[in-house]
Design a protein around this nucleic acid. Structure first.
Lengths: 233, 233
DNA sequence: TAAAAAATATTGTTCAACAATGTTGATTCT
DNA sequence: AGAATCAACATTGTTGAACAATATTTTTTA
């Protein structure tokens, strides 16, 4: 009886489940950037029909994780510099909105606090993979301050895209390390209701994060030579 | 060779074309709120196969224009009060971002100016239908100040949802009339680079617009009695 | 009349087919 | 050899039929 507005791909249907599995693989970097996903092959791999797979493809295309070229097929999106810059523009706008919306004692703070704690531990254990996920979760929680399902959905979208980009990078090991402290600073500013300090902390985080991604983007895994278009994004 | 990142439903494929046609019908209010769309019937109406139609349905569901209940089918979304409030929250955040991003001599200003002019004429001719569309276009153009395809896409999404809500209302005739002047005021403030005045004008517009929609929402067309769930949004 | 059960309709998914478009490779011509 | 041509092949685009699983409606029964 659950109603699906489908911002979260519904795992109820096969197509939705497949979409989620492919999305997770994309985010985990298990495909080459720009790689073509053949309907026949992928359908066989996931043991679903082409029709069902095409529904999943359409969904992931609408999420910008896959790029679709009519009559040619579907390719793993390769976020380029412009995409990264745009994504951080979206983040700046939405997360500034979150700063504005932040109200004392908002439930999101508890979660953010917990995530900062967890982030510290993960950092101490040098589990950078999980630190990255933790970092994302922290900022997702922050957008929760807006109490807006639609803003959260939009944010999730660009975040997924960003994770796709991350999955295509190498040497992302320590990339997340500095954010543990930046997030803590940001949280403190938010909790004390200090708007200017919050904006400053947010901007610091976003600027450094964007610089990090753009820097790492230079040495990306190579895409298949000719099989995939140069800029399918 | 055109690459589809699919924020605009690609008219290239049949499914995309059908999705656009259905979306336009939804926005035009040609379906009852909450109406169930039978796969068999709609597929026959549009002369496409069920498989193709399902792709279109999935797309429109991801745009929140249709609501999907597993094993029960697809229904015309009925934006409720919470949805409207949320939509205006998104607008506030994004359009405030546009105010921040506004830079002297930005190309978007030309379009906004043209739209204000057109809006005046349409208002003089009392073509409220077109005044409504013109108003939407004005604010779309305003978001163009961000130069962010992703923000524009997110904005288009909530705008489509808002138009869906409008399509389900009656007596929306004069609803758009006051916005002609409010938009003009907003544009003047933006062009002169007066941020505070811009924010004030924006808030005035958003508040009045939201109030108007919420007010009209009270006397909505009735939805099919039991056929559709009470709150498929 | 209300509950139970059977009949019917709808969605979920697959499969096979074929047209249309793209890709590849061989052949030819310069 | 290198470029252009054209046939062979593979892939996507779309359909229609089929069948299982789930809802809905109708009929039967208590």
């Amino acid at each position: 009886m659950t109603i699906r507005t489908t911002m979260e791909a519904d795992e109820a249907s096969l197509a939705g489940a497949v979409a989620i599995r492919i999305r997770d693989m994309l985010i985990a970097g298990e495909f080459e950037p720009g790689q073509k996903l053949s309907e026949h092959r992928v359908a066989a791999d996931f043991a679903v029909s082409r029709n069902t797979l095409r529904e999943a493809f359409r969904f992931l295309t609408s999420q910008r994780l896959l790029s679709y070229i009519p009559n040619r097929g579907v390719f793993v999106t390769v976020p380029d510099e412009a995409a990264i810059i745009d994504i951080y523009r979206v983040r700046a706008v939405i997360q500034r909105g979150a700063v504005e919306a932040a109200s004392r004692g908002h439930p999101a703070f508890a979660r953010m606090r917990a995530l900062v704690e967890e982030g510290r531990e993960l950092g101490a254990r040098r589990d950078w993979q999980k630190v990255g996920t933790n970092n994302m979760e922290f900022h997702r929680a922050m957008v929760g301050l807006c109490d807006s399902p639609r803003l959260s959905a939009s944010f999730d979208l660009v975040l997924a895209e960003l994770r796709l980009a991350f999955g295509q990078l190498k040497d992302t090991a320590h990339l997340h390390e500095p954010y543990i402290d930046l997030n803590h600073t940001l949280l403190r500013a938010l909790e004390t209701g200090d708007r200017p300090a919050s904006v400053t902390a947010l901007d610091a985080y976003l600027r450094q994060s964007e610089r990090g991604v753009l820097g790492a983007l230079q040495h990306r895994k190579a895409a298949e030579p000719v099989k995939s278009p140069s800029t399918p994004a």
